[in-house]
Amino acid sequence: MAAGGDHGSPDSYRSPLASRYASPEMCFVFSDRYKFRTWRQLWLWLAEAEQTLGLPITDEQIQEMKSNLENIDFKMAAEEEKRLRHDVMAHVHTFGHCCPKAAGIIHLGATSCYVGDNTDLIILRNALDLLLPKLARVISRLADFAKERASLPTLGFTHFQPAQLTTVGKRCCLWIQDLCMDLQNLKRVRDDLRFRGVKGTTGTQASFLQLFEGDDHKVEQLDKMVTEKAGFKRAFIITGQTYTRKVDIEVLSVLASLGASVHKICTDIRLLANLKEMEEPFEKQQIGSSAMPYKRNPMRSERCCSLARHLMTLVMDPLQTASVQWFERTLDDSANRRICLAEAFLTADTILNTLQNISEGLVVYPKVIERRIRQELPFMATENIIMAMVKAGGSRQDCHEKIRVLSQQAASVVKQEGGDNDLIERIQVDAYFSPIHSQLDHLLDPSSFTGRASQQVQRFLEEEVYPLLKPYESVMKVKAELCL
């Protein structure tokens, strides 16, 4: 049975990233139509530049190519590739079939990587351009969430054990800070992308030097003109047959890092959902379990974690691919890159769409948070109580021993009897502590235990987050809708 299948058929496997999760716009960027249309555009740009620099290419040939950029006979191309065992030459023939007058000058002087690699770089750039505003929107939604809850005390956790208090907004800023680093890295790697350009079979530009009869300047002009037509500021000066596969490492490393950030955020949300302090959106008709109707599973956060793990592992592909590119190139890269580049971007696209949807509907339960604080705060307040007693004339050592005994009794009630923490009640009825009984409410005010959390939130948002989001103001209103 021949390899390949009808990918629109229910009898043929289709990647869930495309069929179930990723956005239509990201799927289109990695589609065959987008790819092969870009090949034709690159052939047109090459012909236009070659004509401008004096090669015998007519206006009629150029116009014929322009008129057929979208006229792609995919069936013919597939048949040609089956016959020739070469995808680029299959599309040269297919393009030439609908451009008979231009057929002889299509791909003039070029090698397969002229269309293959340059198209990949265009796709990487455009895919990054799709991700950047999506990530900015996630940051914006979380920034709104953090600002609104900047002063809401909550129990902090280290080692997932109760620690000092923080605020809900401050905790959210930990998430935002990681995503801001990801946004900066995505922008950097996007701006650092260079075009492969017009380089020939081993990167020496020998074929173009021959076409222009040894004119170095025209060869350099050709490279520059096509690079500018493709919208790049610069091209690699040095290439082998391909652009260095280190570029793929750079791009997928940034995406993998984004995956790590999203995994951490969504894990926190899942843990908070278990504590009943916070939940992701839950639709009115949504079913959490087929057997347990009360369940409210954090399905979206779980999906993000599941896909983020996949995204983090994909960076190993370009690392290994770059390491086995012998001399000017081997074909070890080809099949692998067809999979890992598309999957990385479709996965990143999915987790950003999902995280935006989550961040637009996060639900906080202040009463649950308050109750958990009441359970733990008495123990945390013991040092403040000791200091207040010393100020009232008591002995630190005597007070410490009193607190120690009462704390152990209260802990026994919590752990052995399943009761509430009654340390404060014990202190309130103990005559030894009568000098500070009137101060206990103040000493137990949760806001006095959150330090500068709310001020940190305000400063972080104003100095770091809002300036970073400013270039994306025009796209901030787009909502994230999930079908599944």
Score class of each variant (00 low, 15 high):
residue 447 S to I: 14
residue 185 N to P: 07
residue 438 S to D: 08
residue 224 K to R: 12
residue 218 K to F: 09
residue 32 D to S: 15
residue 7 H to L: 14
residue 445 D to T: 15
residue 354 T to V: 15
residue 390 V to N: 05
residue 256 A to D: 05
residue 381 A to F: 06
residue 66 K to N: 10
residue 434 S to H: 09
residue 190 R to L: 11
residue 457 V to W: 01
residue 474 S to Y: 14
residue 69 L to W: 12
residue 124 L to Y: 10
residue 41 Q to V: 09
residue 226 V to S: 03
residue 127 A to P: 00
residue 45 W to M: 09
residue 231 G to N: 10
residue 33 R to G: 09
residue 430 D to I: 10
residue 345 F to H: 08
residue 266 C to P: 05
residue 117 D to I: 00
residue 26 M to D: 03
residue 333 D to Q: 01
residue 339 I to S: 13
residue 83 R to H: 13
residue 109 G to F: 01
residue 335 A to T: 11
residue 371 R to F: 02
residue 240 G to F: 06
residue 304 C to M: 15
residue 8 G to R: 15
residue 112 S to A: 04
residue 301 S to W: 01
residue 392 A to Q: 11
residue 381 A to Q: 12
residue 201 T to Q: 03
residue 88 V to G: 06
residue 135 L to K: 07
residue 144 D to C: 15
residue 392 A to V: 13
residue 152 L to V: 10
residue 176 I to L: 14
residue 108 L to N: 07
residue 390 V to Y: 07
residue 275 L to T: 08
residue 86 H to G: 02
residue 228 E to M: 12
residue 49 A to T: 06
residue 145 F to R: 06
residue 238 I to Y: 00
residue 79 E to W: 13
residue 449 F to H: 07
residue 44 L to G: 08
residue 71 N to A: 09
residue 10 P to L: 15
residue 232 F to H: 02
residue 158 T to L: 03
residue 80 E to T: 13
residue 417 E to D: 10
residue 305 C to R: 02
residue 452 R to M: 12
residue 80 E to C: 13
residue 212 F to E: 07
residue 76 M to L: 11
residue 74 F to M: 15
residue 484 L to V: 09
residue 391 K to F: 00
residue 264 K to N: 01
residue 234 R to V: 09
residue 446 P to C: 05
residue 178 D to N: 07
residue 69 L to M: 13
residue 273 A to S: 13
residue 440 L to A: 07
residue 289 S to M: 03
residue 433 F to S: 06
residue 217 H to S: 12
residue 156 G to A: 12
residue 389 M to V: 08
residue 327 F to E: 07
residue 158 T to Q: 00
residue 237 I to V: 10
residue 401 E to W: 07
residue 275 L to R: 09
residue 361 G to E: 15
residue 304 C to D: 05
residue 36 F to T: 15
residue 169 G to I: 01
residue 430 D to R: 06
residue 70 E to T: 15
residue 44 L to H: 09
residue 310 H to Y: 08
residue 244 T to R: 01
residue 342 A to M: 07
residue 116 G to A: 14
residue 261 S to W: 02
residue 225 M to E: 12
residue 49 A to W: 04
residue 279 E to I: 02
residue 127 A to C: 08
residue 476 M to W: 15
residue 348 A to H: 04
residue 454 S to P: 13
residue 141 R to F: 13
residue 155 L to I: 05
residue 223 D to T: 07
residue 204 T to I: 03
residue 459 R to C: 12
residue 59 D to A: 11
residue 355 L to W: 08
residue 195 F to W: 07
residue 54 G to C: 09
residue 17 L to E: 00
residue 7 H to V: 12
residue 349 D to I: 05
residue 406 L to H: 15
residue 49 A to V: 08
residue 38 T to Q: 08
residue 197 G to N: 00
residue 355 L to P: 00
residue 208 F to W: 03
residue 9 S to Q: 13
residue 56 P to Q: 09
residue 91 H to P: 02
residue 409 Q to N: 11
residue 216 D to R: 07
residue 175 W to V: 04
residue 69 L to I: 15
residue 305 C to S: 12
residue 471 P to R: 15
residue 59 D to Y: 11
residue 473 E to Y: 13
residue 73 D to T: 12
residue 415 K to D: 05
residue 149 R to D: 06
residue 106 I to E: 00
residue 436 I to G: 04
residue 267 T to L: 08
residue 227 T to A: 15
residue 382 T to V: 09
residue 265 I to R: 02
residue 479 K to Y: 11
residue 57 I to F: 07
residue 333 D to T: 02
residue 219 V to N: 06
residue 230 A to P: 00
residue 135 L to Y: 07
residue 201 T to C: 04
residue 237 I to H: 10
residue 58 T to E: 13
residue 425 E to M: 10
residue 451 G to A: 07
residue 406 L to A: 11
residue 42 L to V: 14
residue 245 R to I: 00
residue 237 I to Q: 09
residue 343 E to R: 06
residue 312 M to S: 04
residue 254 V to F: 06
residue 142 L to D: 09
